[in-house]
């Protein structure tokens, strides 16, 4: 039996990326100048946050702007230990939730997406509509009945209410995303594999999945970032500080009616940005793979 991956390599050889058009030097400089200016606008929030995280508490609001006059690295050590557990504890909790959600979304959403994109079955359109419908209700009216339900399961103060739904493909955003990607893949590939005698599980695992790497990377990145930043459901389901995740912990520094440890809060905000930034840096490499590297150009 022919290896399907190899088959794809028989298609026309890849052409170097640059081949499309070589802009003139002047144009290139103008483009980069524009992009760098835009980059500064995009970067400003992060620069400001880093600078603020190094300011003494009192100076954060009295001296705006991004030029620091003194550096106070204690914000980091104080912020790290200011809550019931060291901040690393919350980072680990968040990491567990994030990993569980990523795994869940990758497996369950891609399976559901394959069914919706490539299989014929009764009521497909209706099921698809129902799937989309599930993301149209705001969480605020779902959360109370859901809490009642999960507390009957005995799941409160565990990560289960956050992870199990992802294992069961409840994140329709990603199902829909993957459906769109799969539908963009040439059918000939499936057909070729089918002629080779492959069933759906094999077509899914050996043809479709490798080709939808960009979609899987997108799913991973977004799941990471959104779960890492998601506040509301983590606040509701995790009542024991031992179980707090980063977004819940970060808000525990702040109280609008008394003075707040802003320095600590900003320092830990910067710390909590690092993992998602790294995740994005790593993940984005895979965004450009997919077809480009599996051979079909």
């Amino acid at each position: 039996m022919t290896d399907l991956r190899e088959r794809t390599h028989e298609l026309p050889a890849p052409v170097p990326e640059k081949a499309v058009k070589l802009p003139g030097a002047g144009r290139s400089i103008a483009k980069h100048t524009g992009l760098i200016l835009l980059t500064l606008v995009m970067l400003y929030p992060v620069i400001w946050m880093v600078v603020s995280s190094l300011r003494p508490n009192e100076e954060i609001f009295r001296s705006p702007g991004v030029l620091p006059d003194s550096f106070r690295f204690e914000n980091y050590s104080e912020g790290w230990t200011a809550l019931a557990s060291p901040f690393g504890h919350y980072l680990i909790n968040s990491a567990i939730v994030v990993l569980g959600c990523i795994l869940g979304n990758l497996v369950s959403c891609s399976m559901a997406a394959y069914a919706f994109a490539r299989l014929e079955f009764t009521g497909k359109k209706l099921w698809f509509a129902i799937m989309l419908g599930t993301i149209m209700l705001p969480i605020h009216v779902i959360i109370v009945p859901q809490y009642v339900m999960f507390s009957q399961f005995g799941w409160i103060n565990t990560f289960l209410p956050l992870i199990v739904p992802k294992l069961l493909a409840t994140d329709a955003f990603f199902v829909f995303l993957m459906v769109q990607f799969i539908r963009g893949l040439p059918r000939e590939l499936d057909e070729a594999a089918r002629i080779d005698g492959a069933g759906h599980p094999r077509i899914f695992l050996q043809v479709i999945l490798p080709l939808m790497l960009p979609a899987l990377a997108t799913t991973t990145i977004f799941t990471f970032i959104w779960t890492w930043n998601d506040f509301f459901s983590q606040l509701i389901y995790l009542t024991d500080p031992e179980m707090y995740t980063v977004p819940v912990a970060l808000r525990s520094y702040v109280d609008a009616t008394v003075s707040t440890s802003w320095g600590s809060m900003f320092a830990m905000s910067v710390v909590s940005l690092l993992p998602i930034f790294l995740a994005f840096l790593v993940g984005q490499r895979f965004l450009i793979k997919g077809i480009a590297t599996t051979g079909i150009k």
Partner: peptide
């Protein structure tokens, strides 16, 4: 992509 990473924290 950075601004999209920032989320909605108090900061």
């Amino acid at each position: 992509y950075l601004p999209s990473l920032l989320g909605s924290s108090v900061a």
